[in-house]
Simulated assay, not measured.
Amino acid sequence: MTQMTVQVITPSGICYNHHAAFVLLNTVNGDLGILPRHIAVIATLNIEELKVRRVDDENHVDWIAVNGGIAEVKDNLITIVTDSAERARDIDVSRAERAKMRAEQRLKEAKAQKDIDTVKRAEIALHKALNRLNVSGHR
């Protein structure tokens, strides 16, 4: 069986490095399913979950909260470079809930003040918090 290697790299180093039989990326152009021997591609990622079906067991799926970034697929190696990423098992749910509440409050205040820049930043923070909470549900 042919397999791929998936590496997720953040500024603090490699946070994920495993073999995979299938990977699902959420790109700015839509979902992209990757199987072994996929053609070379570079794609921009959304703030969304990354699904990695491991080779050791077809029911073993790793879920990773990825906060945007770039994915490169080449020669059965998928390299994802992102500002931050967390595996479902590593997400502190209470911290993510607090981040969600803070972002919602900032968003509400920014909309009331009609502060477009702060609205955009608060929306991104909220999206990141919701993504982490969603991924944490896959434990």
Rank of each mutant, 00 (worst) to 15 (best):
E72L: 05
A103T: 14
V119M: 02
A125F: 07
D31P: 13
A122Y: 01
A129Q: 01
M101F: 13
I34R: 04
A129W: 03
D90W: 09
E72M: 12
L107S: 06
K114L: 07
L32G: 11
I64W: 03
I70D: 07
R139Q: 02
V93G: 08
A85D: 13
D83E: 10
S136A: 15
A112D: 10
K120N: 14
E72Y: 01
E86N: 07
E97Y: 00
A20M: 06
L45E: 08
I14D: 07
V28Y: 01
V52C: 08
A122S: 15
V28I: 15
A40E: 15
V55S: 14
N67F: 10
Q105L: 07
A21P: 11
S136T: 09
V119I: 14
A65S: 06
I9R: 08
L25N: 07
R132S: 01
P11C: 13
S136P: 02
C15F: 01
V52H: 03
D62P: 02
I42N: 05
K108Q: 15
A129R: 02
I14N: 06
V119S: 02
R37Q: 10
L126V: 07
D56F: 05
N134P: 00
H18I: 00
E48A: 14
E123G: 13
V8M: 11
K128Y: 00
